[in-house]
Design a protein around this nucleic acid. Structure first.
Length: 467
RNA sequence: GUCCCCUUCGUCUAGCCCGGCCCAGGACACCGCCCUUUCACGGCGGCGACACCGGUUCAAAUCCGGUAGGGGACGCCA
């Protein structure tokens, strides 16, 4: 086991979205690849916005994706005393100070600075103040170096340098005594001995501040790897208006976790021209250095392709189990009908999602009550009657159960009557499934069973004959 | 406004560090053909990109400079 320690640190203010999931995945992959440790930490220092529902949703998403963590989940809210201790240390050392400026004053100054085109940084009003009014509310600010530069060698983006004068004295403790994000991450990452911080691109600007904190606290500075954003089709940051962003929503839309994982790992990371990766392969081949530097657009089409691929190659029994919830939302009960695994086998080559598969499976259990009129209209009434009669006559006495054998019988019907397969297959397909988009005739008949097959064709024969 | 980052087919990307094998390769999507009893699968083929401008060099997608465009950050959110 190596010394590598990474963490995924979501804030519980919503569900696990695909961007977060990819960050978690990269952390997990690096840990697995290096034999390191993957830690899950919930960043809930914002008491106002954090909810236990969100925590549950995040854990659910992680588990569904199979991103098992080695340690945690840890909650920052459990460590408030620890943060307080370190705030005091900084205060005692003169590396932090109390600031009595009100939020309103600060907002006003910030807005004014923006308007006048100046940088909206804290003006340092309380920085050198010596008199300390005892009874007024205050925040604690970190006394940040104002000269020189802070730079780091990002594992993905390379060397990034910030002039210290751009960085102001950030608040590390709020008026209500709770610590703020930038401070907590540093304490946690340090005390958890995190060696490599992999997180979203949107944190690069926080990194120099955090480095200064590490240094002020005397902690070793970890390595950083900032992964680029995921964008929507309009190249704007991915959000709800682009469609689903929650990983659980993808589960509910009938995606397989391995498909989403495979899609996500290829979004920003590559291994030559490879597209399909099993878990073992991605773990073995993953290298943070092969993560791209630019943002990528989330493309559902490709996800669908991968999902179809994994459906095709999945164990039908497993698929059958996963399909059940999608079937029950369609009021389908499988108990009275054909074996679901057999049904899945006829459908797995032709479905991109489990939702689609469920749609296509309905007819096996609920016999069609109406038929696709447009499709039926291509055949005249006499032809339909003749076909149905011939097929029933051919099938009824036959003791066959294999799809291939059944297809042979249909070919016989064709040759004996001088019909083409299209003239026979299509009407029967409509009789059995109600429409034209269905598995091969032999497969349907074999799955449905001869008795049910005859019953359905008989019904279609009566209805089309009566019109 | 200031700072930081990014820029190869519509999309995901390979190549870039260590210039020539790249008049740029793969995948998704799209189009066509084949297969075919429908829908799919599959097979074959096609369309399609180095943001721009300069420089260095015998040679640049690859190195250097600039421009433009995009994104991110600038919170008592994370």
């Amino acid at each position: 086991m190596s010394e590598l320690r990474v963490r995924f640190a979501p804030s519980p203010t919503g569900y696990l979205h695909v961007g977060g999931a990819r960050t978690a995945l990269f952390n997990w992959l690096l840990a697995k690849n290096q034999g390191g440790t993957f830690i899950l930490r919930i960043e809930d220092t914002d008491v106002e916005r954090s909810t236990s529902e969100s925590v549950e949703a995040i854990l659910e998403g992680m588990k569904w994706l199979g991103l098992e963590w080695d340690e945690g989940p840890f909650y920052q809210s459990d460590s408030f005393p620890l943060y307080k201790e370190y705030v005091q240390k900084l205060l005692d050392a003169g590396k932090a100070y109390k600031c009595y400026c009100s939020a309103d004053e600060l907002d006003a100054k910030r807005n004014l600075a923006m308007q006048e085109g100046r940088k909206p940084k804290y003006d340092g009003t309380c920085r050198e103040q010596t008199s300390q009014p005892a009874d007024r509310p205050y925040v604690v600010r970190f006394r940040a170096p104002q000269e020189g530069v802070t730079s780091f060698d990002d594992l993905i983006k390379g060397v990034i340098t910030f002039p210290n004068e751009e960085l102001d004295d950030l608040i590390i403790q709020r008026t209500d005594g709770t610590p703020t994000y930038n401070f907590c991450v540093v304490i946690d990452d340090a005390t958890m001995r995190i060696t490599t911080v992999i997180r979203g691109d949107d944190h690069v600007n926080n990194t120099p501040r955090q480095i200064q904190l590490y240094q002020a606290l005397g902690f070793p500075v970890p390595q950083f790897a900032h992964v680029p954003m995921i964008l929507g089709s309009d190249k704007a940051r991915l959000s709800k208006r682009h469609g689903a962003t929650s990983v659980i929503a993808y589960r509910d839309m009938g995606f397989l976790p391995e498909a989403l994982i495979n899609y996500l790992v290829r979004l920003g990371w590559s291994n030559g021209d490879d597209e399909i990766f099993s878990r073992a392969e991605m773990i073995q081949k993953f290298d943070i250095k092969n993560v791209g530097r630019s943002a990528s657009v989330f493309n559902t089409e490709k996800l669908l392709w991968l999902n179809a691929h994994y459906i095709k190659n999945s164990d039908p029994a497993r698929l059958a189990g996963l399909l059940l919830p999608h079937l029950s939302t369609r009021q389908v009960t499988t108990l009275a009908g054909p074996d679901l695994v057999t049904v899945v086998n006829t459908l797995k080559e032709r479905a991109q999602t489990l939702e689609e598969m469920a749609d296509r499976a309905v007819f096996y259990y609920n016999a069609p009550e109406t038929y696709d009129e447009a499709a039926l209209a291509k055949f005249d009434k006499e032809q339909l009657q003749a076909v149905f009669a011939a097929v029933i006559a051919k099938l009824s006495p036959a003791p066959v159960t294999e799809a291939a054998e059944i297809d042979l019988l249909f070919k016989e019907v064709c040759s004996e009557n001088g019909w083409k397969m299209g003239q026979v297959g299509q009407p029967v397909r409509i009789a059995l499934s109600g429409g034209t988009q269905a598995p091969g005739i032999g497969e349907i008949v074999a799955t449905l069973g001869m008795e049910e097959t005859i019953r359905r064709i008989q019904r279609a024969r009566e209805i089309t004959g009566a019109q």
